[in-house]
């Protein structure tokens, strides 16, 4: 394994872990509703930039840990993260060629899939909340995507 690979792996784990922690940091109510799914965005970024490092297993584990952290039915976020990671892996060759806005749009689609999985499993387990504002993180996540890419690129370039 190349040494650069190892630091990348470390960065990957650390960024997703940070995203998980930020998922439960207390925020004022209006910000809480639009809180972007930073852990998932981090996973997406790493799948697009270094698919050999970011596999499905860690994404799944991260989702499972998020379930435990937030006290949801075990497996909900795990399934959501897994589906998105899988789709991103399949689309990765195409998506990394997209211009940034186009890429943000496809990330929005993936986030939509993720929130749909959560919404659906919520409904199946009888916790359904059907308000429109549960879909807001999809939008904020997509808006945040260019920033995530910029931040990630600047960090990985330095570590190279």
């Amino acid at each position: 394994m190349k040494p650069g690979n190892f630091t990348r792996r470390l960065l990957y784990w650390a960024s997703v872990a940070a995203g998980l922690v930020l998922a439960i940091v207390p925020l004022p109510a209006w910000l809480d509703v639009v809180r972007p799914d930073l852990a998932l965005l981090a996973i997406l970024y790493w799948i697009l930039t270094s698919p050999r490092i970011a596999g499905l297993g860690y994404a799944w584990l991260a989702g499972l840990f998020l379930d435990v952290l937030r006290g949801m039915t075990l497996g909900q976020h795990a399934l959501g993260f897994l589906v998105v990671a899988f789709l991103a892996h399949r689309l990765q060759l195409r998506m990394r060629m997209f211009p940034i806005l186009h890429q943000a749009a496809s990330v929005m689609l993936l986030l939509g899939v993720y929130h749909f999985v959560i919404f659906w499993t919520d409904g199946l387990t009888g916790h359904g909340y059907t308000g429109w504002n549960r879909w807001l993180p999809v939008l904020t996540g997509a808006l945040l995507w260019p920033l995530i890419v910029a931040a990630g690129d600047s960090v990985t370039r330095r570590s190279r």
Binding site: L74, G75, L79, L82
Partner: peptide, 14 residues
């Protein structure tokens, strides 16, 4: 595999 695992988890948990 993992999808099946998460569905099994959800059923078992819920």
């Amino acid at each position: 595999t993992l999808a099946a695992a998460s569905i099994a988890l959800m059923v078992a948990d819920d």
